[in-house]
């Protein structure tokens, strides 16, 4: 098993933190081989931001995403730029309030930023979408991500982050039931 996951958005949306939490969950709490990298340099200019996780059940040599299995896009630019670097069967998740997909695309949609605003802080949209991904993915463990959140975020934002995670997770479950 080797999965390549990319999270993209713009600076301030917390895509690096989201990648870190996911990577930490895999690495420390699911004991999977995991590498997280992030875009530095020219790629990261103009406010664009992206983080990548490679997770495998054997030692990872090459650490970068070449063709993503999962693309989580929190911005239009993030979607447009990285859509081409995904596998044909890739899972694409977008923040539906911020990204308009190409007509031929049928991505999974979640109003992550809107849900985060409902919780009072739009900056937790990253964790909302992480919750959503966790619910639809069969390789991420919910407990692992929650543990990663608990051990990483500032204590005073912990409950907010856990709520955000729950909101995204629940959204996926409701969708599942409705479909």
């Amino acid at each position: 098993m080797r999965q390549e996951i990319r999270i993209s958005g713009f600076g301030g949306q917390g895509v690096i933190l989201a990648g870190f939490l996911l990577g930490k969950a895999f690495s420390l709490y699911q004991d999977l081989e995991t590498v997280m990298t992030q875009a530095y340099g020219p790629e990261a200019r103009g406010g664009a931001s992206s983080s990548s996780i490679v997770v495998a059940d054997y030692p990872i040599a090459y650490p970068f995403v070449q063709k993503a299995d999962v693309l989580i896009a929190l911005s239009q630019e993030g979607y447009t730029r990285y859509r081409g670097e995904t596998k044909p069967e890739a899972t694409i998740i977008i923040d539906e309030g911020l990204v308009t997909p190409k007509p031929e695309d049928q991505p999974l949609r979640i109003p992550a930023t809107k849900l985060a605003e409902g919780l009072g802080r739009r900056i937790v949209a990253n964790v909302v979408i992480l919750g959503y991904f966790c619910a639809i993915s069969d390789i991420v463990s919910r407990e692992a991500v929650e543990e990663a959140i608990r051990t990483s975020v500032k204590p005073k934002t912990l409950s907010l982050n856990l709520e955000a995670f729950e909101a995204g997770f629940a959204y996926a479950k409701i969708e599942e039931r409705n479909s």
Binding site: E33, T34, V35, T37, Y40
Partner: peptide, 10 residues
């Protein structure tokens, strides 16, 4: 090198 400096792993 930059790759090893910035990459995150266990």
């Amino acid at each position: 090198d930059e790759v090893v400096g910035h990459m995150v792993e266990r």
